[in-house]
Write a protein that binds this DNA or RNA. Structure first.
Lengths: 342, 342
DNA sequence: ATCCAGTTTCGAATCGATTCGAGAGGTCAA
DNA sequence: TTGACCTCTCGAATCGATTCGAAACTGGAT
C-alpha cells in the first residue's frame, strides 16, 4: 500500500541505494540527483518502513515506559510524569511505547528481546521490585525512576523525599511550632514499604525528634472519612498540635476542611505544609506552602539518561533531585499560646 | 545480541522454517520436533524480532494513541482515559505507542506511513480537527474519540454529553427547582467550540428553557478566584437560584466551598449536580450527585473498534455512550420558600 | 589521446523473519 | 515390489531497507 524505497528510486530514476544515501547522508550525493530524489519522496509521501529499518540498524527510535498497575486506573499523580516523559522523549527524537505489567513482566521482556524498543524507562520503582533484576538481565539501555534496594548497576533518578520531609519540618520549627503531625500516604503504601513514602516520613520525623518537638504520624487513604480520622488522631496524639505535614495529594484539601470544621483557622491556629507538585499546591482554595517535587525535571533527566545510553554512552549515573520549599498561605508562626505552653 | 530464529533452528537441529511453523502453527509439526524447538526457544529466551516480523506480515501489534497537547501537562482528566485504553489494548493483544502532536501532525503521519503502527486512536477530537482529514487520507485503521463535524467516514465514539446535560436538568426540575445555573469548562474551551462542552451546556439549557425554568450559564477556568466569580455571577443572574449544574471537575469542590462561604447549605439551600466520572464525585467531602460519563467503556469500545478494523472488519460504526445519573448527597428538593415564589 | 584521481552512482549481500513449492520419509493397498 | 497418498520438513524466494565494494563518469594533467 505505502510506497517503498524502490518506488522512489524508479520515480527518481536512480537506484535504491542512492535513495538511501540521500536519506541518511552517509555518502555525498550530487545536488541534481538529491533534488530529484527529494521530489520523488515528497510526491509519494514516502517514509521508510520502521520495521525494515530497525532490522539492519538495530535501532527503531522507540523507548518503553513501563508503568506498574498497582495504583489502579484512578491514580491522579501519574499523568504529569507521563506527559513530561512523553515530551522529553519527543524532544530527543524518540517515540514512547507504553507497557503495563499486569501480565507479570512479560511485556517488558517481549518488547526488549523482540527489539521493539531501544530502551526501557521503569516507572515507580519499588524497593524490591521484581522488574529490576529482570531488566538488568536483559542488558538493554534502561533507567529506573525510583530507588530500589539494589539497582543492579543501572542508572536511576529519584526525588530526595527525605530532604522534602526535612525541609517541611525545619520550616515549621523555625516558625516556632513544637507540636507537629505527619500525615502520609495510604496504609498500603507503607505496608509495601515504598521508598519515597518511608523516606519522606523518616526525614520529617527524625528532624522533629532531633529538635525535641512533639510529633506523631499516620497513614491516610485519602477518603473523606479517613482524612477526618487521621486529623483527629494526630490532634489526639500530639499535645498542643499547631502544624501538619501532609504528603498526600488527595487528602490535602480535606485536611484543611477538617481543621476548619474543628473551628481551627489555617494558618492562624494550625499551619499546614504539603509535599506535592507546585501546581497542585497553588490550585487550592488556600494556596499551600509546599515542598515541591520537580516532576518535569525528573522525567526529563530520566529520558536524557536513557537516550544517552541508547546512543552508546555508558555512564551509569544516579540523580537525586532536591525539592524546593515554596512558602504560601498555609503556614504562619506558631500561636503565642502554644508557644508558651510548648 | 539477542538470538535469532537461526540460532533456535541450529540448537534444535531443524530448519528456520520449521521454527517459524512451530511459532505460527500454520502447518502441522510432529510432537517430537515441536518439543525440541520449544525447548530451544525456552533455552535461548528467543522472541521474534518485531521489525523483521512486521516487514512480511504487515502487522506489528502496535496501535497509536494520538493525544493533543492543547491542555498542557497538568490536565487531570486524561489519565483514566489513558489507563483504560492501555488495558483494553493489552487485553486485545496490542501495545500502545503514544503520540503527541505538538509538532503538527507529522508524528501521526510518520508512524502510520512508516508502518510503525497498525492503527490510530485519535483522542480529544475537536469539531474541526485538522488531524481528522489527515488520518482519513492515510487510509489506515482508525477510530476517533470525540465527535468532529465531519468524521470522514471513520468510526467514532463519544459520550452523549447533551443527554448528560439533560439528565441533570430533568433531575433538578423534578425536585422542584426553577432557578438553575450552569457552570461549564474554561472560556477557552467554549471559544474553541469544543463539541462535548457545547452539547452538554445546550442539552441542559434547552431542557430548562422548555420547562420555563430560569437559567443562566458561565464558563469557569477552575482557579479559586474564578470559581467565586462564576458562582456569584450565576447567583446574580438567576433570580432565586436554588441549583447548579457543574461540568468542571476542578471547580466542583470549590463551588461547594463558595456556596458554604455565602452561608448557603448544600443541598438544603442549593442543590449541586455534576457531570464527571463517578470516582471523582464520590471522592468529594460531600459525595456529589452526578451524571457520570463511562470513561472506561468509552476507551474499551474505541480500542475494540480499532482492533476490529485491524483484523479486517470494515464496519464503520458510530457509538454514542449514554451517561447515567447517580443520586448522591448534593441534591434535595427545592426549598419551599423558593418554590412558592418560583 | 591516455591515464589518473576524485566524485557520484550502482549492484549485490545482508538483516530476521514468513511462506510457498517441493522433497523426504512413512504407511498401506494392489 | 511398486505406486499412491499422507505427513512432516526443508530450501529458497521474499518483504523493505542499509551498506560495502566496485563501476562509471568527470575533469585535469601529461
Amino acid at each position: 500500500m505505502a510506497s517503498t524505497i524502490v518506488d522512489v528510486a524508479n520515480l527518481a530514476g536512480v537506484s535504491r541505494s542512492t535513495v538511501s544515501y540521500v536519506l541518511s547522508g552517509a555518502r555525498p550525493i550530487s545536488p541534481e540527483t538529491r533534488r530529484r530524489v527529494e521530489r520523488a519522496i515528497e510526491e509519494l509521501q514516502y517514509r521508510p518502513h520502521a520495521g525494515a529499518r530497525s532490522i539492519r540498524s538495530g535501532r527503531n527510535g522507540v523507548i518503553a515506559m513501563a508503568l506498574p498497575m498497582v495504583h489502579g486506573p484512578h491514580n491522579q499523580v501519574q499523568m504529569p510524569y507521563v506527559w513530561s516523559a512523553l515530551t522529553a522523549a519527543q524532544d530527543l527524537g524518540f517515540k514512547m511505547l507504553m507497557l503495563t505489567d499486569d501480565d507479570g513482566e512479560s511485556a517488558i521482556r517481549d518488547s526488549v528481546v523482540g527489539s521493539q524498543v531501544d530502551g526501557v524507562m521503569l516507572m515507580e520503582v519499588q524497593r524490591r521490585d521484581p522488574r529490576v533484576p529482570l531488566l538488568a538481565s536483559l542488558k538493554c539501555p534502561a533507567v529506573l525512576v525510583g530507588t530500589p534496594d539494589d539497582s543492579a548497576r543501572m542508572p536511576y533518578v529519584d526525588f530526595d523525599t527525605a530532604l522534602a520531609g526535612r525541609l517541611c519540618a525545619e520550616h515549621l520549627l523555625e516558625l516556632g511550632h513544637r507540636g507537629i503531625g505527619y500525615l502520609g500516604q495510604s496504609p498500603a503504601t507503607f505496608k509495601r514499604d515504598v521508598a519515597y513514602a518511608v523516606h519522606a516520613r523518616d526525614g520529617a520525623l527524625s528532624t522533629l525528634r532531633a529538635a525535641r518537638a512533639r510529633s506523631a504520624w499516620t497513614a491516610c487513604d485519602g477518603q473523606p472519612g479517613d482524612v477526618v480520622r487521621a486529623v483527629d488522631q494526630l490532634m489526639a496524639k500530639v499535645r498542643n498540635l499547631t502544624a501538619l505535614i501532609v504528603y498526600n495529594e488527595r487528602a490535602l484539601p480535606l485536611v484543611v476542611d477538617r481543621l476548619t470544621g474543628l473551628g481551627l483557622r489555617v494558618p492562624e491556629d494550625v499551619s499546614v505544609v504539603a509535599v506535592c507538585p507546585d501546581d497542585e499546591a497553588e490550585r487550592l482554595r488556600l494556596p499551600s506552602t509546599s515542598a515541591s517535587l520537580p516532576v518535569e525535571e525528573l522525567a526529563r533527566t530520566a529520558v536524557r539518561l536513557l537516550a544517552g545510553q541508547v546512543n552508546g554512552e555508558t555512564s551509569a549515573s544516579v540523580t537525586i533531585l532536591p525539592p524546593t520549599l515554596k512558602i504560601r498561605d498555609t503556614t504562619a508562626p506558631a500561636p503565642a499560646a502554644a508557644r508558651d505552653r510548648g
